[in-house]
Design a binder for these strands. Structure first.
Lengths: 121, 121
DNA sequence: TCAATACATGAACAAGTTTTCATGTATTTT
DNA sequence: AAAATACATGAAAACTTGTTCATGTATTGA
């Protein structure tokens, strides 16, 4: 009997072709796996998460991010570049300042859902 | 004017202490950031996501995971060990087989939420 | 125009991760 | 008891990632 209450079946051996077919239906394709991994990877670094937490409700300039996070300006800029390339943040320039904000409600959603799980246990 | 409709304020410069105080309230603490990063990191590898997708609804033995994913037995075992150490999967032994299943509804939830975002665009 | 401020970026380095390779243990089959 | 099957694991190799260092561009101020 399976341990996990959510589990519907036990699948093993290559003998039972029908079971293996069922299993294959659940397998996500490599392209989906890669894109999904990219999103989660963007959220898999503590400093990047701290940065994102600052952008959850406000747009903030690079210098203030630097001061608030206690990271070097270069490190911040590299991280922002990373997030930009994934279309997770966007920016606008005003004079010599560059303001960053979340580009996407997806990130906000995943961030908050992850936070719930971590906080309540 | 901010670009992001969700954005409530524009924060810049160290001059305005009140704004910086508001910003600091949003900053997650390092311990939370680390635990949050760990969860997302577990979901940040394509092969691990493909593996998890097989365990979403069923418990599956290692050999079948190997055959279905087209990975070596060793690579599978190492990934399973990793997921075990994070309490994301559990296993039970039966004869010479070891059945793995998700340990945790959290992962299922995050996985599915991530998938929605990736699939619909 | 010269200096200062705000930000970006390439290159190198340190650290971490995933896979492979080789080997080991436990269970079953013959 | 020997061979085969199922799985685990340490160590090394190959690859990825984050930060630092050095330097570059653009805008503002003196």
């Amino acid at each position: 009997m399976p341990l996990d209450p959510h589990t519907t079946a036990t699948i093993c051996q290559d003998e039972d072709a029908e079971q293996i077919a069922i299993l294959n239906e659940h397998l996500i394709d490599p392209s989906t796996a890669n894109r999904l991994a990219e999103v989660f990877k963007a959220l898999s670094d503590p400093n990047r998460l701290r940065l994102i937490s600052l952008l959850l409700e406000n747009e903030v300039c690079v210098h203030t991010l630097e001061a608030t996070l206690g990271m070097t300006q270069s490190a911040i800029s590299h991280q922002l570049r990373h997030l930009r390339q994934l279309n997770l943040v966007r920016f606008r320039k005003e004079g010599r300042h560059v303001y960053y904000a979340l580009d996407d409600d997806h990130v906000r959603g995943l961030f908050k859902q992850g936070l719930l799980h971590v906080e309540h246990g």
